[in-house]
Structures are given as C-alpha cells and as structure tokens.
Amino acid sequence: MKNDQVILRERAKRVAGHKTETEKMGKPILVVEFLLIPEKYCIDSSFISEVLPVKEITVIPGTPDFVVGVMNMRGKIISVINIRDFFNLRDKGISELNKIIVLNHNQIEFGILADSITGTREIDADKLSIPPVTVTGTGSGYIKGITADGHILLDAAAILTSKMIIVNQK
C-alpha cells in the first residue's frame, strides 16, 4: 500500500514531467477541437469568442451556399457559415450541426457550424504535418496543417481576413 508521501512524490513527478514536455514545445497554442463530419478539425482558441448551441437560423435569400443564415445572439445578429461548403467539399455522411463556434477578429465576426465540440488542448504549431491531398483546393489556403492525431488545424486568421468570405453584392 502506498503511503501519502509516495503518492505525493509520484504526483510531483508527473506534474514536473508534464512541464518539461511543455517547455520542449516550440509554439504551444490552445485549440478547440471539433467534429465536422467526416473530418476532425481544430482552431486556435484566441480567435474564438464563444461556442453556442444552434438555435433558430433565419435563411437569407440570395446569399451564397456557404452562408447558412443568421442567428440571434443575445439581441445581436450574427451570420453562420458552413466551412465545408466554403472549402467546396462535398457533403459526406449525416451531420448533426448542432454547435456554432463564434469567430472574432478585427471587427469581423461570424459563426461556423460544427457537429460537436470534442475538447480543447495545447498543440505544438511546429509539429504539424502538411495537409493530405484530400483537403487541397479552395480549402488549402485556410489550413495550417494536420496535428499528430489527425485534426485539421484551420488557419483562423486567414479565414477571418479572407475577402472571399465577405458577401457584398453591391
């Protein structure tokens, strides 16, 4: 039977070990991981202002396909887009699309649809692999790379500053 001392020592070791591992990380970034069937994505949390459950979405006629509609965020109207459509990826499988991740950067704000949020974690931006061929095309400019466990890291800054994403039919 372990006494308290031993337990504490082991715990200290674990914590210390974890720290040294973090120090080894080049550029740790905190990401939110989410599922958008069939892919697993993650996105830098510093661009996320909140995550909401999908409530009623009002369709706006005449908008491009990637614009799902607008929704009421505590009296403020925000638009919601489907990044799979924005990347021109064909629909695969059945999506639940019941979460909205609200992105925010320099006056630009909109929500992106997700099937579910799977967690948050720190990843090393230096240890990403290049995206596989399946996600090239329109989307490739908005992807930073693939994490070790197969999450596609979205380039939030590129998406938020993209001219393509702004709909201006003037």
């Binding site: 706006i60 607008v70 109207i77 638009s79 702004i166 201006n168």
Partner: peptide
C-alpha cells in the same frame, strides 16, 4: 446582418 454579410441584394 453582421460584418460578414456586408450587402445582400434586396
């Protein structure tokens, strides 16, 4: 309609 939808016709 929010900053992303700058101008939607009609």
């Amino acid at each position: 309609l929010g900053p992303q939808l700058a101008h939607i016709r009609n």
